[in-house]
């Protein structure tokens, strides 16, 4: 084998020889980031909604009051602890702690999913709480005024608007998670950074290897950012509406049709 002499030569050489390792790393990174963000959002939505439950009134029964305080304390403790400690340390504690204390033989992957989800959940909980609070009180009142229950109001009026409003923050979290899964290399999760480190060590080509993986990280985050913007755009729907003649459709099936499908598609959003 003739060793490459230039920087570019090494880059090409490493890619040609180790592309399965890089790609596998990308795969693991994206899976952990996406699944972790998704589960984190579910946890965040749940915790965020629970955190907005109003304090029971002074005349409520004692048990309800105690339950409320204990629940709020636990939720706050969860948020503060997981926001307040580094994910890398959490990964170590969970991975080694689960084996030592609970005798649980967690695979590095499982520990990875767990840590990323629980960590994202802590951040998302606060985002969701803020999102719910930002919804105009009039929306809730209007829903109540036509007789909707608290649950119906949440599900059909408040949450859809909250989720739309916090979508940019969900995007932030996904991008942060793609990058931050690299800390899971401490528990030997074979994500991109971990695989990169292995490749770099073979020929001691650190700069070239990390240059390659930095580009790969960037491609992943960039594509995710574009995808999220596209999703936001989809949710917002068209800026136009079409006037319809209700007389033309007495069957009432008009309602099932989507109002307006813009044909511009992905390309235009890509260019924005």
């Amino acid at each position: 084998m003739v060793a490459p002499r230039s920087f570019l030569g090494w880059v090409i050489f490493l890619i040609q020889k180790y592309y399965p390792l890089f790609l596998q790393g990308c795969g693991v990174t994206i899976v952990i980031a996406v699944v972790g963000t998704f589960l984190g959002c579910v946890i965040g939505l749940l915790v965020g909604v629970l955190r907005t439950i109003p304090k029971p009134r002074a005349d409520a029964n004692l048990l309800a009051k105690i339950f409320h305080s204990v629940l709020q304390f636990l939720l706050l403790a969860y948020i503060e602890i997981f926001r307040g400690t580094p994910m890398m340390v959490q990964a170590m504690v969970v991975y080694y702690g689960s084996a030592q204390v609970f005798n649980l033989n967690m695979s590095p992957m499982t520990a990875g999913f767990f840590v990323v989800s629980i960590n994202t959940g802590a951040y998302m909980a606060e985002t969701v709480r803020g999102g719910i609070k930002s919804i105009d009180k009039g929306q809730t009142e209007a829903a109540m005024a036509i007789g909707m229950s608290h649950w119906q109001t949440m599900v059909s009026v408040v949450m859809p608007q909250t989720i739309r409003n916090i979508l940019p923050q969900i995007g932030n979290n996904l991008i942060i998670n793609i990058k931050d899964t690299s800390v899971l290399n401490v528990i030997s999760v074979t994500e991109l950074y971990f695989n990169g480190k292995s490749v770099a060590g073979i020929y001691y080509r650190y700069f070239e290897t990390y240059f390659i993986i930095s580009i790969m990280y960037f491609i992943m985050t960039f594509l995710c950012a574009k995808f999220l913007r596209w999703t936001e755009h989809k949710i917002d729907g068209s800026g136009f509406y079409e006037l319809v003649d209700p007389e033309a459709d007495p069957t009432g099936m008009l309602a099932e049709k989507t109002p307006h499908k813009p044909a511009k598609g992905v390309m235009r959003i890509w260019l924005r």
Partner: peptide, 10 residues
């Protein structure tokens, strides 16, 4: 019926 309409924005 409210002063600020309060139609469901979503």
């Amino acid at each position: 019926v409210f002063q600020s309409f309060n139609l469901f924005q979503n």
